[in-house]
Design a protein around this nucleic acid. Structure first.
Lengths: 344, 344
DNA sequence: CTGAAAGCGCTTACAG
DNA sequence: CTGAAAGCGCTTACAG
């Protein structure tokens, strides 16, 4: 193959060293900003570096140093803007540490996730941040840690033996329920969808707990489809329950936005005839009318936490597993109003 | 540092070869699925691979083979869901090729973009897909190609000397203008924001061209802010122009969604009092009421095109620069209605 | 179809 | 503070 025949033959550290009249080891020290090398020598070498247009070969360095300055990130989807923000947060911190992220998308498929994990291992990543699929068993993921590959779980918690950065979903649910209750709502639905992972269970448990605490019926849980138009069409489901809810909390903003649209289609006025609380507080929560009240789950912060946890773990492989659970906060806008009796 | 002392000492190809009673070169051939090796030998080696739990060391292979099976992707932001979909498309194709993507976010900053490009080069990526910042000059990016690093431009076109995968923005504008004109609109605004790059200019030029073609005033271009709430607040700007528009085409759906909200706040009924066409057709276009009519720019497809172009370029470095410009299509929903005279 | 040798470009002890 | 040597784990010609 002539794949690389246009590639200029590489300038190596040895070339630089010769040009500067030092040994290769010295040049290496200069590059890595070691304090062991004298100012004059450093100067000479840096000059040579520039004159020759030297490019550091991370691959070669990795091979020797057994560290690639690369971390893997596995997300279950890139369709939800929430994950874009999470990635932003991760990218911030990883970039600051002069490392680089290898991104992959599992599509919520366990088998694909395994493949990606394997691929990342072959690429020699220094660690992995993953939002694991619902099917992931604790031993599966602990085994990866046994490979010597640090893993931090993000958003979805599978095992207590590994680091985790997530969101206090139960607390968020509590905030949503408290708020609706303060407006007089008693029949509150919880609209959910998607695979049943820890983030799902924590939300459901949080909802049930908060409702029970107030002596309210915690069983008004309705499952809706995945895509926007389907969710909108499913809005009438809310009223086919045994008890008629006057408000709904949504698993995420995708559902909230979809239901808001569907309720509109049914002739309901959100914030007046019916109250709606979203979850995540994505950018578009601000763009619908009425503006969507939503529990913010601060994805950028969660991403940053996960990245910090991973960097710390890499530096200190044997410390006890850490957890950082971010508080949510309720962003009150216009989609909720006081409860009132109304006829269908 | 004891960073890696928990790492099991690695099984190498040599270990495998010994275990299978063959030479290292033979084991290497088996791994790379070369047809040169006999079935019996292959069997033996594959057995050994499994028994020892061998993990391929891509880093070592890269060093020797001068190919990392890694490609770099630089996006200007991760906040817009549009880029999430673009990444999905890239990830598909790159993953199929058993390669991996290194992701970075330039934040629309040229200096950061330069840093990232350099970093990717040091990591030895086989090529880069980049949505370049507005300040990027042709020579800057051509120089990168001179490094021997294949680059494909995505969405934003800087130079004809390198591959490009994009969208027929001018065609999309034509579709939007034609559609609004067919509804009787004559005073059509174009709402824009953000940095002035090729994708920006092509849209503006497309708008102007399409308007002129019909003898309509092409100068109703209004700049709005970047964030959702600010855009909504800026909606009245539409009516502070010399001529009162009865419709607006938006640079992207973020603007369209923001303006739709702002128009609602002004007491206008979108699709009735005022017509709105978005651009990109993101998921939420389906979720607002009235549903947003939008020019779809098929981001997943564009991502796939860019990735294919890059893989081809890597295989064939000397072929002429290619361009793949995807057609847009108008997704008609509910946000446009017939033009009619109305008093403010 | 298989083997022995060299080398990709670094970093790491070890001397001095 | 600097240098000479070894080696990270693979692939690549080159023989046979």
């Amino acid at each position: 193959m002539s794949t690389h025949d246009h590639r200029k033959s590489r300038i190596t550290l040895l070339d630089v060293a010769r040009h500067a009249n030092v040994s290769r080891a010295t040049a290496s020290l200069v590059i890595r900003k070691s304090p062991l090398v004298g100012a004059a020598t450093r100067e000479k070498v840096e000059q040579a570096l520039k004159e020759l247009g030297y490019v550091y070969n991370m691959g070669a360095a990795s091979l020797r140093a057994e560290r690639s300055n690369t971390i893997g990130v596995i997300v279950p989807t890139l369709g939800n803007p929430f994950y874009g923000e999470l990635l932003s947060g991760i990218d911030n911190i990883v970039g600051e540490a002069e490392m680089v992220v290898i991104l992959a998308n599992s599509g919520e498929q366990f088998s694909r996730q395994s493949l990606l994990l394997q691929r990342m291992r072959e690429h020699g990543v220094d660690g992995v941040i993953a939002s694991l699929t619902a099917e992931t068993q604790p031993d599966c993921i602990e085994q990866i840690a046994d490979w010597g590959l640090p893993v931090v779980q993000v958003l979805r918690h599978v095992t207590g033996k590994l680091d985790y950065a997530g969101v206090d979903y139960a607390g968020g649910m509590q905030q949503a329920v408290d708020y609706l209750a303060s407006l007089g709502h008693e029949d509150i639905a919880f609209a959910v969808h998607g695979p049943v992972h820890s983030a799902y269970r924590h939300r459901v448990d949080g909802f049930r707990g908060a409702m029970l605490e107030r002596g309210l019926d915690p069983e008004l849980i309705v499952r809706v489809p995945m895509t926007m138009p389907q969710i909108a069409q499913a809005a009438p489901l809310l009223f086919e329950q045994e008890r008629q809810p006057t408000a709904a909390i949504c698993f995420n903003d995708v559902i909230a936005l979809g239901l808001a649209a569907g309720l509109y289609d049914c002739g309901r006025t959100v914030g007046h005839d019916f109250s709606l609380v979203g979850f995540d507080d994505v950018a578009d929560a601000e763009a619908t009318r009425p503006r969507l009240t939503s529990v913010s789950s601060t994805p950028v912060t969660v991403g940053q936490n996960a990245a910090r946890l991973l960097l710390e773990r890499i530096a200190e492989p044997h410390r006890a597993p850490q957890q950082i659970v971010s508080k949510t906060y309720l962003k009150i806008r216009q989609s909720c109003g006081p409860a009132k009796a109304f006829a269908i």
